[in-house]
């Protein structure tokens, strides 16, 4: 029963979505819309599950004075503050939640992301070596695109932006399309396996 019900739900949901994509009709549209509403509700509960899980894990670490336990306390306080103010006062403009988000969370996230620029520059300088033919091609291409895609590029060589655009629109797109098609085929076959009940790892078993 523990396996059959989830497999049946997965099959019916997947089958309905496939039929809805290709078919039409009032009843089908009604059914699909209801299923999509359920999906957003289930996704909402999965977020709640995530909150419960992170609280349990962090609280466990704090109680046992495990690794980095002071950070877990900060995490729990931040979680409680954001949830509390969000639930009590709302999350729109002028609320404490909004203030905390704008003044603390947003700058911290932007800072973390900005720091990447320094590490990327350092890593590129240390690791980007033309050791093989393939690495040399990559290196030359990267330099053309990096210079050709910024305003300074046309001062260095007038046609550099056109060469960079050509690289982006043709060799790059050809490779990207191959990756997209490959990933889509993989996703389609995995979806079929789930719908048909062959793939069951999402239930925590093989």
């Amino acid at each position: 029963m523990k396996t059959r019900i989830p497999v049946a739900v997965a099959f019916l949901s997947g089958f309905l979505m496939i039929v809805a994509f290709f078919g039409s009709g009032e009843w089908l549209s009604m059914l699909t819309n209801e299923a999509l509403r359920y999906m957003t509700i289930v996704a909402g509960f999965s977020l709640l599950l995530g909150v419960v899980s992170i609280t349990q894990v962090s609280w466990g670490v704090v109680r046992k004075r495990g690794e980095d336990w002071p950070y877990k306390i900060i995490l729990l306080i931040a979680l409680a503050a954001m949830t509390g103010f969000g639930v009590l006062q709302g999350i729109t403009g002028g609320t404490v939640f909004e203030w905390l988000f704008d003044k603390i969370q947003k700058p911290m996230m932007a800072t973390m992301f900005s720091v990447l620029a320094f590490y990327i520059a350092s890593a590129a300088y240390r690791a980007f070596r033309a050791r093989t033919v393939e690495a040399s091609i990559l290196l030359v291409t990267a330099i053309i695109v990096m210079i050709g895609r910024v305003p300074m590029g046309q001062y260095i060589y007038e046609d550099l932006p056109s060469v960079a655009n050509w690289i982006m629109m043709f060799p790059n797109v050809a490779v990207q399309r191959g990756i997209i098609i490959g990933a889509a085929l993989g996703a389609a076959s995995m979806s079929l396996r789930i719908i048909l009940g062959i793939e069951r790892t999402y239930m925590g078993r093989g």
Binding site: Y125, A130, I147
Partner: peptide, 15 residues
């Protein structure tokens, strides 16, 4: 523009 030039300069220098 300047950062891209700088990174390219360092990559060339390293090579």
């Amino acid at each position: 523009s300047i950062i891209h030039l700088l990174i390219v300069l360092f990559i060339v220098m390293g090579n």
